[in-house]
Amino acid sequence: RHRTIFTDEQLEALENLFQETKYPDVGTREQLARKVHLREEKVEVWFKNRRAKWRR
């Protein structure tokens, strides 16, 4: 597996949602994934990693 490289637009959308909710539900993740052309799984893992970074 290779590392996903997120575009600035994707990161902006992910960060904006993170400010709203640290734990978006699957529907919200799917909606964002469609909007920025990512797989929902990638969005889910990004949030998991972003929460870990936020806790540190």
Rank of each mutant, 00 (worst) to 15 (best):
D25E: 08
R55A: 10
R34N: 12
Q31K: 15
A13T: 04
A13L: 15
Q10L: 00
T7E: 03
E9C: 06
Q19D: 05
E40V: 14
K22F: 04
D8I: 07
R29W: 02
Q31F: 03
W54A: 12
N16G: 08
V36G: 02
L17T: 05
L32Y: 04
Y23F: 09
G27T: 14
E44H: 09
L17I: 15
Q19A: 07
R34S: 10
E30A: 11
V26P: 07
Q19F: 04
V45F: 07
G27M: 10
K42T: 13
H2G: 13
R51M: 03
L17Y: 02
K35D: 06
H2I: 12
K48I: 03
L14A: 01
E44M: 09
K22Q: 10
I5D: 15
L14M: 06
T7Y: 07
Q31C: 09
V36I: 15
R3A: 07
W54S: 12
K35G: 06
L17D: 01
E20R: 08
V45P: 03
R55Q: 14
P24S: 02
A52G: 11
N49D: 10
H2S: 14
N16V: 07
E30I: 10
P24M: 01
H37Y: 03
E20K: 15
Y23H: 05
E40T: 10
L11Q: 05
H37L: 07
F47W: 03
L14D: 15
F47V: 04
L11R: 05
R50A: 10
G27N: 05
F18Q: 01
T7P: 01
I5V: 10
K35Y: 06
E40N: 10
V45T: 15
K22I: 07
N49T: 12
K53Q: 10
L11F: 15
E40Y: 04
T21K: 04
L32F: 14
E12F: 08
E15P: 02
T28S: 13
R51E: 01
R29Q: 03
T4K: 12
E30F: 07
D8W: 05
T4A: 09
Q19I: 08
E30Q: 12
F6C: 04
T21L: 01
E41P: 07
N49L: 12
D8G: 08
E20A: 14
L32R: 00
R3G: 13
E15H: 06
K48T: 08
E15F: 00
F18H: 00
E20F: 11
T4M: 12
Q19E: 03
R1N: 15
K22C: 03
T7M: 02
E15A: 04
T21P: 03
I5H: 09
R55G: 09
D8Y: 10
V43D: 00
E41N: 11
A52W: 05
F6E: 08
H2A: 08
D8K: 15
V36T: 05
E44I: 06
F47R: 00
E40F: 15
T21W: 06
V45Y: 08
F6R: 02
R3T: 14
E41V: 05
R50L: 04
L14H: 00
K53F: 06
P24W: 03
L32N: 07
Y23S: 02
R51V: 01
V43P: 03
T4D: 15
R34A: 09
Q31G: 10
Q19L: 08
L38A: 05
H37R: 07
E9P: 12
R34H: 04
R29A: 05
T21M: 13
L38V: 08
T28C: 08
Y23V: 03
W54N: 03
R1G: 14
E9Q: 06
E15C: 02
E44A: 13
V26N: 12
R29G: 01
R3S: 14
I5N: 09
L38R: 00
E15Q: 01
V36F: 09
L14F: 02
G27P: 10
Q31W: 11
L17R: 02
E9G: 09
T4F: 13
Q10R: 01
T28Q: 12
V26H: 14
W54Y: 08
E41R: 05
E12S: 13
R29C: 08
K35M: 15
Y23Q: 03
Q10C: 02
E40M: 14
L38M: 12
E44T: 10
L17K: 07
R3F: 11
I5W: 11
F47E: 02
E12Y: 05
R50C: 06
P24G: 01
E30N: 08
K35A: 11
E44V: 09
R50K: 07
N16H: 11
Y23T: 11
F47N: 02
V36H: 02
K42F: 06
R55E: 10
K42W: 13
A13E: 05
F6P: 06
T4I: 09
A52E: 11
W46T: 00
E12K: 12
H37S: 07
D25L: 01
T28P: 01
E9I: 09
R3L: 14
Q10G: 00
E30R: 11
G27A: 14
T21E: 08
E44W: 07
I5C: 07
A52C: 03
E44G: 06
L32V: 07
F18W: 10
N49A: 11
R39W: 05
V45M: 13
F47A: 05
R34G: 05
R51I: 07
D8H: 04
Q31D: 08
A13C: 05
Q31P: 02
A33D: 04
D8L: 13
G27L: 07
L38S: 08
D25F: 03
R39F: 09
E30K: 10
R51A: 04
V36M: 07
W46G: 00
K35E: 15
R51F: 07
L38G: 00
N49M: 13
K53E: 15
A33S: 07
